[in-house]
Nucleic acid binder design. Sequence first.
DNA 1: CTGTTATTGTTATATTATAACAATGTAATA
DNA 2: TATTACATTGTTATAATATAACAATAACAG
Lengths: 131, 131
Amino acid sequence: MAQKKEYLSKNQKIVLDIIEKSSQPMKAYSILFNVQKKGLKAPPQVYRALDKLVEIGKIHKIESRNAFIACRNSACTITNATAFSICESCEDVKEISSSKLSKYLSNFQDKEGMKYNKYNLEFFGICKKCK
Amino acid sequence: MAQKKEYLSKNQKIVLDIIEKSSQPMKAYSILFNVQKKGLKAPPQVYRALDKLVEIGKIHKIESRNAFIACRNSACTITNATAFSICESCEDVKEISSSKLSKYLSNFQDKEGMKYNKYNLEFFGICKKCK
DNA sequence: CTGTTATTGTTATATTATAACAATGTAATA
DNA sequence: TATTACATTGTTATAATATAACAATAACAG
Ligand SMILES: [Zn+2]
Ligand SMILES: [Zn+2]
Ligand SMILES: [Zn+2]
Ligand SMILES: [Zn+2]
């Protein structure tokens, strides 16, 4: 389920390429700046590509930071179950791939027995380097 | 730890009051519109109040929606451990108060044994009414 | 080729959030 | 009281994030 689509469009490839080259989340307008030499001139071109890439699970949005990071979680077959650790000091972000965690959360039911088809979890703390 | 402060300032009270009267998350500019009759005219006045109210745990930000909801989780002594269920159809949002869930997540350690002092979890699905 | 759909290019604008600085209020204390 | 320190407020302007709308082009199945 990680990949719902085999081929990416030109703009989607360009945007994904930039994001994959970065080890850290990138902001939309920083992506825009970086792809201008490739001919993408306006925000909608970037945002459309971002939307699609998020949809097919190639990238994830870090909601608390309004930034986008490439998915490197090869075990991340469930694109709609994401977890990240975020350092509040250096802003380093890592995708967490714990099958135990994802099982626990995917099976979570609220008081009324409702189950969810999607979740996003963001952990915050101070990373090793910053300690 | 839910309340770090006994008294709220005038603007903080006004903003909190509006949010508490709403059963659902409110957007900052909708709050602004609603408090203009009370004399708060400009965005910074609202955003400052929001920042403080989030900090002391009176409200939470729903990151995926850029909206703010009052904390009604009386058991929510840990303001920095938040979980919500969000209906993707009607946008209904509920704060989840499950001590089991919060214990599990507060104790979660990543591969390198790192623990976190804060998390935010957002579940997505279709609520009962919308089914 | 023809109709259909996805993608792209483009301009303008909407929405969310903060910088910067002056003015005022509040409270402890010299 | 006068003095200081600090939090809060008011205000203007602007930054940062994201989408609407529509025309043009490309991709592709029938
Ligand atoms: Zn992933
Ligand atoms: Zn760090
Ligand atoms: Zn709460
Ligand atoms: Zn619903």
